[in-house]
Design a protein around this nucleic acid. Structure first.
Length: 259
DNA sequence: ATGCCTTGCTTAGCAAGA
């Protein structure tokens, strides 16, 4: 049983990569971010042919999230309830597990935030507040929950290729990291850190300046899990292989394996 | 560094990403 998350930076461009990756890695649930296409252009048929159900929340040009799954999704929620948002950033669904229990999957594309002090940063903070309230409420009903996606926040310096040069810049500010810790304090665990990882493990690399080749990256794509899922987790990896292909997304998939 | 890439929208140059 595997859950994965991947910011594809345009599903229109990256659909072949997604299909190839799923053929090699037939995960049970794949959360996608940055679809960059409206609902009516979502490639549901191609994904169905690949054996995947899909639920999605599209948006023209920007944002957009989806959940692909082997099993049929239940109790689908689009957008953070009680947080009217013109930007399509959140989707949730429930899936059956082989033992008869269920897993609640919340897939999110957190706002970038641009720079501390900007309007976009203020929106990021409001969005994070709303997400916290929503996840807290979801946890009352779902002991097995995974919150995964492009968080656009690093946990600490170990997630940053140049922590001194990027100190208190976007993705690395104390304020953003405090929000991330508030989510953790709800009783969640960073799945990546549950396991031994290679040094300098990142999930995003800038397209410019040979960022990937020099491993100048950030770990900003995360899977947070509840105690019950932590107990079942047997591995969590970042798959750098798709980042090496021609015309890649700037993000790599993150994969959680559950026993 | 004011950009460096990439994408979408619109059709050459922005906006936005991170």
């Amino acid at each position: 049983m595997q859950l994965a998350t991947w910011n594809v930076n345009s599903l229109g461009v990256r659909l072949p990569h997604v299909l190839e990756w799923l053929a090699e890695h037939p995960v049970d649930v794949l959360a996608l971010q940055e679809l960059k296409l409206p609902d009516e252009k979502f490639p549901a048929e191609a994904l169905r042919e690949a054996g995947y159900h899909a639920v999605w929340l599209g948006q023209k040009t920007y944002n957009g999230v989806a959940l692909l799954s082997r099993a049929e999704p239940q109790d689908v929620v689009r957008h953070i309830p009680g947080f009217p948002d013109e930007q399509s950033r959140a989707i949730a669904a429930t899936y059956p597990l082989p033992d008869g229990s269920t897993v609640r999957v919340v897939g999110c594309y957190f706002p970038n935030g641009q720079a501390p002090g900007s309007d976009k940063f203020a929106y990021k903070m409001r969005w994070l507040d709303a997400l916290h309230r929503w996840v807290q409420e979801e946890l009352t009903r779902h002991p097995q929950l995974a919150l995964m996606g492009d968080y656009n926040i690093t946990f600490d310096d170990a997630d940053v290729w140049d922590p001194d040069g990027l100190r208190e810049t976007i993705h690395c500010t104390t304020e953003e990291r405090q929000h991330l810790q508030r989510l953790v304090a709800l009783g969640l665990h960073d799945a990546h850190r549950l396991f031994e990882q290679p040094p300098k493990s990142y999930s995003w690399w800038d397209y410019r300046m040979l960022g990937f080749q020099k491993n100048r990256g950030l770990r900003i794509d995360h899977i947070l899990v509840t105690d019950a899922l932590k107990a079942r987790a047997t591995g969590c990896t970042i798959d750098r292989a798709p980042r090496k292909k021609p015309q890649p997304s700037d993000h790599a998939p993150v994969v959680l394996t559950l026993g």
